[in-house]
Amino acid sequence: MNLLYFAWLRQKIGKGEETMALPDGVASVADLIAHLKSLGPGYADAFAEDGRVRVAVNQKHSGLDAKVAADDEIAFFPPVTGG
């Protein structure tokens, strides 16, 4: 998987992008967030409030129940504030 982090998620996690093998037992975005939270305090802080995080799977807005696969691009970001 290619994981992307934007805005304050990038700052809390300390990087904007990383490649990761699909972890065992991870089938959905919610599973992936639970796994990421276990990786360290930066991740735990970034995902502390699930309600403040949005996700895109393969560049399409998605929900927590969306399926994830090994070759997906998955991006996490705050609610958007452009315009």
């Binding site: 805005a7 970001f77 705050p78 958007v80 504030t81 452009g82 315009g83």
Partner: peptide, 14 residues
């Protein structure tokens, strides 16, 4: 289009 940009286009302001 402006309403859409404000709510769905991935931009973030600091």
């Amino acid at each position: 289009l402006m309403d859409y940009l404000k709510t769905s286009a991935p931009f973030w302001k600091e």
